[in-house]
Simulated scan of single mutants.
Amino acid sequence: HKHKELMPDEIYKIFQDEYVNIETPYKLIDFLLKKEPDGTRSGTVEVEIDGKHETFDARGNGRLDAVSNAIQRELGVTYKDLTYSEHALELGQSSRAMAYIGITGKDGKVTWGAGMDTDIITASIQALFSAVNRMKAGK
């Protein structure tokens, strides 16, 4: 829209605003998942919806799958073909991780979201919430 070449910091800001840790209409508050004897993960996911806290039961073959199952069941969101990628943003123990998730809606459209956190699992779940929120917004 500016009819000019964008600088790297401008591109980064657009990416952050459009894809990373998108928190509306569903905001991830926390999750607690443990490994069951059969190898699955189960626990809870705490979500804020329109200022109200909700806690959902979660179960799946891994932490991301458990949260994905809870989102689809409890929020009535339907998607398939979850695509996932991650990488570190810096070196060292306190580095941040970036995760990217693409989900395919009922209409066949793929929607992407990104999550950033110092914990890769949290970044992955944030990316899933970002993708779901972007899908709900029609982006």
Rank of each mutant, 00 (worst) to 15 (best):
I101R: 05
E48K: 13
G92D: 11
I125T: 02
A114K: 08
V45W: 04
D117K: 03
I103S: 09
G108A: 12
K4P: 00
G108M: 09
T55E: 13
I11C: 01
D57C: 00
F129G: 11
G39F: 03
A88I: 04
T24S: 14
F56S: 01
E36K: 11
T78C: 00
G102I: 10
L89V: 01
T83P: 00
S42C: 10
L89G: 04
I120E: 02
Y100V: 13
Y12N: 09
H3Y: 02
A127C: 10
A127P: 10
G62H: 07
H53Y: 02
A127H: 11
R96V: 04
V110N: 14
N133H: 04
A88G: 15
K80P: 00
S85T: 13
P25Y: 06
T78H: 09
T44G: 06
G60I: 06
A99I: 03
A97H: 12
P8R: 06
V45A: 06
E5C: 01
T83G: 06
S94G: 07
N69L: 02
N69W: 00
I121W: 07
T104S: 09
I120W: 04
S94K: 12
G62A: 07
Y79M: 05
G102V: 08
T122L: 09
L64N: 03
E23G: 03
Y84Q: 04
M98N: 10
G51N: 04
S94T: 13
K2G: 07
T78N: 09
E5S: 09
L32S: 15
D107Y: 02
A66M: 05
G92I: 09
F15H: 10
H3W: 00
K27A: 08
P37Y: 03
P8F: 06
H53I: 12
L64F: 04
S130M: 08
K34E: 14
D117V: 07
V67Q: 02
R63K: 14
I49Q: 11
K2R: 09
Q93V: 10
G92E: 11
T44I: 14
R59V: 15
D65A: 14
G113R: 11
A123W: 05
G60H: 05
S130I: 02
Q93L: 12
H53V: 10
R41W: 14
E18Q: 13
K80Q: 11
L33S: 07
T83L: 15
G102E: 12
H1L: 02
L33P: 04
M135A: 13
Y26N: 07
A70C: 07
D57Y: 13
L89D: 01
R59N: 10
G138A: 09
L28M: 13
H87G: 11
S68Y: 01
K106Q: 15
S124Q: 05
